[in-house]
Design a protein around this nucleic acid. Structure first.
Lengths: 342, 342
DNA sequence: CTGAAAGCGCTTACAG
DNA sequence: CTGAAAGCGCTTACAG
């Protein structure tokens, strides 16, 4: 029960009564083809359900027509703990790829892997999209290597001044400031921060500094004693909140560096007998779909993942074509829900 | 600043002082090569950082070395509302692909799209993995077309008797029964079901019937008046629970066809002044990471996504090699948390 | 164990 | 506007 062998452009040529070269021209959309000839060829293509062989085409043109999405995870080798935020990004990236006529190869990578180069050198992909949280300083060197090798890539993440390559990121600083201002307006001054706040994690760090700036404008500031490291997961948020509670320092609000951290933290706070938002206000970052359905619904910062995915793909396609592309910062906006007020 | 042009097997051959054919043999792992020759070639490969050109190789062998994952979504064209359950599946599928030496192409598809065939005909992929909820009866016909065309594919979903192709699924019937028995043990007899319960959605239907069977063993059963359709999302669960409440029928437990539905439903129940689990017990299905952190933590049914991803890839690789592969049902297990008791 | 040679299915300068 | 021809970089029978 084998499927009948695949049609080639030669079959189409025979059927349409033209040369194989002309078939190829029609399929590539060459303007040099007579309209009637074009139609005959197209009819033959439909009749035999012909599809251009991707490998032959790519071998000839030296273009893969494919982009590779490398999702790297920091320490957790556990399948299930990928941030849902990246899932919506994945959705918009796949769609943008389809619109641009590219296929998308997806691979999960450890930060420690030697992922640079493989995809391009083997011609599997024309360029790379890098996505994921992780220690920036640890992987900055890899970005530099990519640039040196002339690899085309774009990454989602903080847009820094002296950064190798093209980055698309959210305005984390402004997002953090919005949260700080919101919490301050509600009268909170002792704001704990759950998440790494160092140059190793520039995105989290910017959120921290934005919040700090908002408090400083009021004569206050973040208290480093109220900051606890956490990667982006519910478990880490839960653990970080417990660490915070164990310090027995007063705080009236928690700004979690991501929604997952916030949700884990809310559980720890509740378990400890604290009410959210009556005893502690909690805010997150990302606006994942679950944020609306957390108990209480989570105040957070929205990032436009649809636009982000589009920009990532657009920029990469531009780089692949040899055109310039620039790093871009996308706006952040505050979404107020029950977890910070009534 | 172009990268220096890619090394080819001819460059390696020159450097190692052998023929290009021998280079190819070494890279394919042919046993016919002398150990010393092999080493010289491998050294040259390392020195030039050579990678086999995928397209040339695939064109010659007529194997893409790539599998395609088609994630289809039913009605929602919204990027962000993909079930996190599929995300963990995606993780395990990518890893299994890597282990089997295949790349993974990912694409999101509308159920209505004409996705069959494109990937294989253009040689982009050797086989397809189909993943997603959706109206089974609507897409059953497409599966039959795939089988007719000799397309190699596996799907995640209910394992039915007369099903076209190979399916890997969870034992939804048993999972539903576990939930029914658990709820019955707690004294609940009026169990509402949120989710479609018809042959259009065989997975949900099996969960429903399993629960029904558990009640029947005790002389009861599910009351169709307590069933409300819902696709797998928080919003749908929220809406379905409100519909249920509006019917003003007594019920003491809710079995949601998925965790997302359960989380949305808990919000609606709480908003309505009902306490979970004191007034209504709630159980879900899937055990997504968020289930542990729902408020209250959600009782649910665990499916082994790691094993599922492995099985999907293994089976497909087998089909691609022309070997037989069988549909498999994976076990389901109950995870009891606060939402059904103390 | 190794090399010379054919050929996978396209694309595109070249010639007309 | 169209065709004949070269060649992309491999793999693998074939011959030795």
């Amino acid at each position: 029960m084998r499927k009948k062998s695949k049609a080639t452009s030669i079959d189409i040529a025979h059927l349409a009564g033209v040369s194989q070269a002309t078939v190829s021209r029609v399929l590539r959309g060459s303007p040099l083809v007579n309209a009637q000839t074009r139609e005959r060829v197209e009819a033959a293509v439909r009749e035999l359900n012909y599809k251009v062989d991707r490998h032959a085409s790519s071998l000839r043109t030296q273009r893969a027509g494919t982009l590779a999405l490398l999702l790297f995870e920091d320490p957790t080798p556990d399948d299930s703990h990928i941030n849902p935020f990246f899932l919506s990004m994945l959705g918009s990236i796949t769609r943008a790829c389809a619109r641009h006529g590219h296929d998308l190869l997806v691979s999960f990578q450890q930060l420690s892997d030697d992922w640079h180069a493989d995809y391009e050198d083997s011609m599997k992909a024309d360029g790379l999209i890098l996505l994921g949280y992780g220690d920036y300083l640890a992987y900055r060197g890899k970005l530099e290597t990519l640039v040196e090798q002339g690899t085309r890539f774009v990454r989602w993440g903080a847009v820094l001044d002296d950064q190798p390559g093209v980055s698309i990121g959210c305005d984390n600083l402004h997002g953090g400031r919005l949260v700080g201002e919101h919490l301050a307006t509600l009268g909170h001054r002792r704001i704990a921060f759950l998440g790494d706040a160092s140059s190793h994690y520039p995105e989290f760090y910017d959120r921290y500094r934005g919040c700090d700036a908002a408090l400083q404008a009021l004569g206050g500031g973040m208290d480093p004693a109220l900051q606890v490291d956490a990667e982006s997961s519910e478990e880490a948020g839960f653990a970080a909140a417990r660490t915070l509670l164990a310090r027995k320092l007063p705080f009236d609000a928690v700004f979690a560096a991501s929604d997952l951290i916030a949700i884990g933290a809310m559980r720890a706070l509740t378990d400890h007998g604290l009410r959210v938002p009556e005893d502690v206000a909690v805010a997150g970052f990302d606006d994942i779909p679950m944020a609306r359905f957390a108990q209480p619904a989570l105040t957070t910062v929205y990032q436009d993942t649809t636009r982000a995915g589009e920009l990532l793909v657009e920029s990469l396609v531009r780089l692949v074509r040899g055109e310039p592309a620039e790093s871009t910062t996308l706006p952040a906006s505050l979404v107020v829900r029950r977890s910070t007020g009534t």
